[in-house]
Amino acid sequence: MQYTHTINDGIITIKLKGDLIGEDSGVDIIELVNDTIQKDVLHCIIDISELRYINSSGIGVLITILTKFRNKGGEVCLLKPSESVQKLLIITKLNAIFSIVQNESEAIDLLKK
Results as ranks from 00 to 15, higher is better:
residue 46 I to R: 09
residue 52 R to W: 07
residue 66 L to M: 15
residue 76 V to H: 07
residue 41 V to H: 03
residue 43 H to T: 13
residue 102 Q to E: 13
residue 64 T to H: 06
residue 12 I to L: 11
residue 68 K to E: 11
residue 55 N to T: 12
residue 85 V to G: 05
residue 37 I to R: 00
residue 66 L to N: 02
residue 22 G to P: 08
residue 48 I to Q: 05
residue 5 H to T: 15
residue 112 K to C: 04
residue 50 E to N: 15
residue 11 I to Q: 02
residue 30 I to W: 05
residue 6 T to C: 08
residue 48 I to G: 08
residue 57 S to I: 03
residue 66 L to V: 04
residue 20 L to F: 00
residue 31 E to H: 13
residue 74 G to D: 01
residue 46 I to H: 11
residue 61 V to W: 01
residue 79 L to I: 06
residue 80 K to F: 03
residue 31 E to F: 10
residue 53 Y to A: 10
residue 70 R to L: 01
residue 65 I to A: 09
residue 19 D to A: 11
residue 112 K to Y: 05
residue 39 K to Y: 00
residue 8 N to A: 13
residue 13 T to K: 15
residue 5 H to D: 10
residue 1 M to F: 06
residue 84 S to T: 14
residue 78 L to Q: 07
residue 10 G to D: 11
residue 75 E to K: 12
residue 78 L to H: 03
residue 62 L to H: 06
residue 97 I to A: 02
residue 83 E to V: 14
residue 18 G to I: 06
residue 29 I to K: 05
residue 73 G to S: 03
residue 89 L to V: 10
residue 27 V to F: 13
residue 57 S to R: 12
residue 38 Q to T: 09
residue 109 D to R: 10
residue 57 S to Q: 11
residue 68 K to P: 01
residue 100 I to Y: 00
residue 65 I to Y: 04
residue 89 L to N: 07
residue 35 D to V: 04
residue 67 T to G: 11
residue 88 L to T: 15
residue 88 L to Y: 12
residue 15 K to G: 03
residue 64 T to M: 11
residue 84 S to G: 11
residue 44 C to D: 01
residue 57 S to L: 13
residue 38 Q to C: 09
residue 61 V to D: 07
residue 56 S to C: 10
residue 20 L to A: 08
residue 84 S to H: 15
residue 81 P to K: 12
residue 45 I to T: 11
residue 60 G to A: 08
residue 47 D to G: 03
residue 83 E to F: 09
residue 32 L to Y: 00
residue 68 K to N: 10
residue 107 A to W: 01
residue 79 L to E: 04
residue 59 I to S: 07
residue 83 E to G: 11
residue 79 L to H: 04
residue 48 I to P: 00
residue 11 I to F: 02
residue 89 L to P: 02
residue 65 I to V: 14
residue 83 E to W: 05
residue 52 R to A: 13
residue 78 L to M: 09
residue 75 E to D: 15
residue 44 C to K: 01
residue 48 I to C: 10
residue 95 N to R: 05
residue 29 I to F: 04
residue 95 N to E: 12
residue 24 D to N: 15
residue 70 R to D: 00
residue 31 E to K: 14
residue 7 I to D: 03
residue 89 L to E: 03
residue 98 F to L: 02
residue 38 Q to A: 15
residue 102 Q to F: 06
residue 86 Q to P: 01
residue 77 C to G: 05
residue 35 D to I: 07
residue 44 C to P: 03
residue 42 L to W: 04
residue 26 G to I: 01
residue 87 K to C: 08
residue 19 D to S: 13
residue 104 E to W: 01
residue 11 I to A: 06
